[in-house]
Simulated assay, not measured.
Amino acid sequence: MNKMFTWQSADHLGIDGLAQVELPIPEPGNKELLVKVKAAALNYSDILMISDKYQIKPPRPFTPGQEVAGIIIEVGEGSSLNIGRRIASKINWGGFAEYAIVRNDMVIAIPESIPFTEAVTLPVAYTTAMVALTQTANLQAGDSVLIHAAAGGVGLAAVQIARHIGASIFATAGSDEKCRLAEEQGADLAINYRHQDWRSMILDATEGKGVNVILDSVGGDITLESLRCLSWQGELLIVGFSSGEIPEIPAHRLLLKRASAKGVYWNHDRNQSMLDTIGCQLVEMYQSYVIRPIKQDHYGFKDLPQALWDLSNRNSVGKLVVKIGE
């Protein structure tokens, strides 16, 4: 068999423009791997990319999807991995397909004990949470952290990691159900931002001191209000802008608290050693029950557009995962 099914984004932008097509199975190049995809995870950046609103703009038509798990079936020249190896990986695009090309240096080797539908959550969501809390900030036991969008993929990963570190965890989410989930995963206080004054509640809970670290993947007004919740020398970690609004941060808010705003960004070309270490740490954390991905994996390959709509409309918790290969 030399053909595969894949989802493509062509001239018609957005989710409605996706089409399932049949294409030749690609061949791996130098230090590349051909992976039979068993599961692909969704990220908000997928929606931005197919809408031509992301910083990476692949030539059209292209196959979206940036997080895959599966089995290596062919290796390119110079690869250090073997056929048959179970892996999870971030890729630039191309994941929503039966087969995908993966860079050798982006791979997280996965043991048999981790199902593909859970392994696929490690390369982006958990990695981002680890980079944010342990590398961009240096969250320690006894510190306090506020995690926005705490029932999302990165948010829940951050809650679990912060719980393991021993921090006091405050969380916001958009429904009572999502708040309960965040608390079940380790948040000390979860606040429904749609119906409660979360800023006042955070300040009350910290006796007016604010929190040491804020993880913000939302942007917009949430970022501006978050500045008022920072402690002296606090750190605002900017992960993304799921609200669609990029805020203009008033510098005097940072100055008056000797606080800082830091971008959480990583890539394998610049951060290879750090990411290799984090990949190994995440596998160990999974095997020791420190982390357990919260996911919705009832979607089949044909259900990708609906899964993207659910993510776009916030009709989901945790990571959304599409099962591709059985």
Rank of each mutant, 00 (worst) to 15 (best):
Y289V: 06
A129Q: 00
S45C: 02
P64Y: 09
E32N: 02
S144N: 04
V102M: 01
T277Y: 07
R163V: 13
V290L: 02
L81R: 00
V68D: 05
Y299W: 08
E326P: 06
G78S: 03
F62H: 01
G142M: 12
S312V: 02
I83T: 07
V102Q: 12
L33R: 05
A167E: 04
M49T: 01
V107N: 14
K257M: 08
T134D: 13
E22L: 11
A190M: 08
V239D: 01
I249N: 07
D52H: 10
L156I: 05
F170I: 12
D105T: 05
P115M: 12
P115Q: 10
A97N: 07
D188Q: 07
R103A: 08
N30R: 10
A69C: 05
H298F: 13
V159Y: 06
W266M: 12
H252N: 12
G300V: 08
M49K: 01
A10Q: 12
V321E: 13
V102T: 11
P59L: 07
R180W: 06
M1N: 14
K90N: 10
R314W: 04
S217C: 14
V35W: 01
D46T: 00
L189H: 03
A187Q: 02
V131M: 15
V75S: 01
A141T: 15
K295R: 15
K31R: 15
E184D: 09
D46Q: 03
P59T: 04
H12D: 10
T117V: 10
F170D: 06
L254F: 08
F170R: 09
F5R: 12
Q287P: 13
V283Q: 04
C280M: 13
G84K: 15
E32S: 02
I169V: 06
K302F: 13
L48S: 00
H268N: 08
P123R: 04
A251S: 12
S243T: 07
I161M: 02
Q233V: 03
R258H: 14
R194S: 07
V131A: 11
A167N: 09
W309Q: 11
L23D: 07
S9D: 04
I47Y: 04
V107R: 14
L215Q: 05
G70L: 08
E67W: 04
Q66I: 15
D11A: 06
A40F: 00
G94Y: 05
G219K: 09
W232Q: 07
L282T: 03
E245S: 04
Q296A: 06
L320V: 02
R270C: 03
E177T: 15
N43T: 01
G210M: 10
G208Q: 09
P305L: 00
R85L: 15
K53Y: 02
V290R: 07
L42Q: 05
I165H: 10
R194P: 10
P293W: 03
G244Y: 06
N138V: 05
Y289D: 13
T206Y: 12
T117N: 13
Q8E: 14
D188W: 05
V21H: 01
I108T: 09
I15P: 01
G94K: 01
M285E: 00
A69L: 00
A69D: 05
T121E: 03
G210T: 13
Y299E: 01
A162P: 01
Q8S: 10
H148I: 03
Y99F: 15
Q8W: 09
W309V: 03
I169H: 00
R270G: 02
K3M: 15
E32Q: 14
L133R: 11
G29V: 00
Q196R: 14
E22W: 08
A41H: 14
V120M: 11
A162W: 02
K319H: 03
R103G: 13
R199N: 13
